[in-house]
């Protein structure tokens, strides 16, 4: 890649940031060039972000309909899945899946809720609600 080929078309997932790319200058030296990002990067990042947002939105609607616990929404809103929430909270995956059932979630003791709240970095009372 030559210096003048470094993508500068912008990438809204980068915000105001620029990332360092290596490219060849006029003298043939490989140098660092700050890049505003490319449409390619934006496409694949948004694809991943959209997928996670869609999961969270789907969970939010099911939680509103009483089909799942708000915990599922918050798990996806924090870009986690059951496996990651399990590692972060130290609660076994099969227990988390049970806790996603609304009637079981409603009966959870304070100390279990506290562990979820910490893992998701949420105040305890928000864990029981939806935005």
């Amino acid at each position: 890649m030559d210096v003048n080929e470094v993508p500068q078309e912008g990438n809204r997932t980068l915000g105001p940031h620029r990332k360092a790319l290596y490219a060849r200058d006029e003298q043939g030296r490989m140098v660092i060039v700050p890049s505003c990002g490319s449409e390619v990067d934006e496409t694949v990042t948004l694809q991943a972000v959209d997928r996670m947002n869609a999961q969270a939105e789907d969970a939010r609607q099911r939680a509103q309909a009483g089909l799942t616990a708000p915990l599922e929404y918050w798990m996806y809103a924090r870009r986690m899945d059951v496996a990651l929430l399990s590692q972060t909270s130290g609660i076994w995956q099969w227990r988390i899946r049970r806790h996603l059932q609304p009637h079981r979630f409603a009966r959870l003791p304070q100390r279990v809720l506290q562990r979820y709240a910490e893992a998701l970095s949420l105040p305890l009372d928000r864990l029981r609600t939806l935005p």
Partner: peptide, 22 residues
């Protein structure tokens, strides 16, 4: 999504472009 994931690993995760080749 799988193909997007490959490209993300190659270009997006701090590589300096082209999966560190540059």
């Amino acid at each position: 999504n799988y193909v997007g994931h490959i490209v993300r690993m190659q270009e997006e995760i701090g590589t300096g472009g082209a999966g560190f080749r540059f």
